[in-house]
């Protein structure tokens, strides 16, 4: 299973290395074309004096330019495919990239889960879970005492909540703790 995941990640990394510019260019140009059409349907208010002075002008200009830039970058990407193929990561570099991919993925996912849990479990609990989890899995550890991680996590989470509540008058989400502590 682990091997399969690694193989999948390495093929993603290689494909990204080869075709990232083309994909990005095409995506940007495509999305801009759709939004350009969307912009042409925007309401023009009666206040507008010339076509320059309407809600359509800046979006249309921007998306128009983005279509051109997207195509240019895709074409540049096609030109570079062969050069990219020569610098394709392999061996140790590829292994390091696979670890990097996993770590970045864990980092994003854990932040997303943290935000999701914030309104449900309360900021205090979600932050403690997030902090402890990330301290162990987000980066390579320098190896401080386990106790330290827990103390830091609890201190940061609780003090953030109370400092913001007392002094800045911002109530961070309490989730199911509502009524219990605040």
């Amino acid at each position: 299973m682990a091997k399969r995941i690694d193989a999948l990640i390495s093929s993603i990394i290689c494909a990204f290395h080869l075709y990232s510019d083309i994909v990005m260019g095409v995506l940007v140009a495509g999305a801009s074309a759709l939004l350009y059409v969307n912009a042409s349907h925007l309401k023009i208010s009666s206040q507008s004096i010339t076509s320059l002075d309407s809600a359509q002008f800046v979006p249309k200009l921007t998306f128009g330019i983005l279509i051109v830039l997207g195509i240019i970058i895709a074409l540049q990407g096609i030109k570079k495919i062969n050069a990219n193929r020569e610098t394709l990561p392999s061996g140790d570099v590829l292994a390091a990239s696979i670890i990097g991919f996993k770590r970045s993925f864990i980092a994003v996912l854990s932040i997303a889960i943290f935000i999701f849990l914030m309104t449900r479990l309360s900021f205090i609990i979600a932050a403690i879970i997030y902090l402890v989890f990330s301290m162990y899995y987000m980066v390579e550890r320098r190896g401080w005492k386990h106790k330290t991680y827990f103390i830091v996590a609890i201190t940061i989470s609780v003090s953030c909540y109370y400092l913001f509540d007392r002094f800045i008058y911002v109530k961070l989400p309490l989730g199911f703790l509502k009524g219990v502590i605040g």
Binding site: I111, F114, L131, S134, M135, V139, I156
Partner: peptide, 25 residues
């Protein structure tokens, strides 16, 4: 301060800061 502590703490404070701008998720 080791990165394994610094980074999660920075993210937590960023999240709090973002929430505090307008008080919404």
């Amino acid at each position: 301060v080791p990165r394994e502590i610094l980074y999660p703490v920075v993210i937590t404070i960023c999240v709090v800061g973002a929430y505090a701008t307008n008080n919404n998720m």
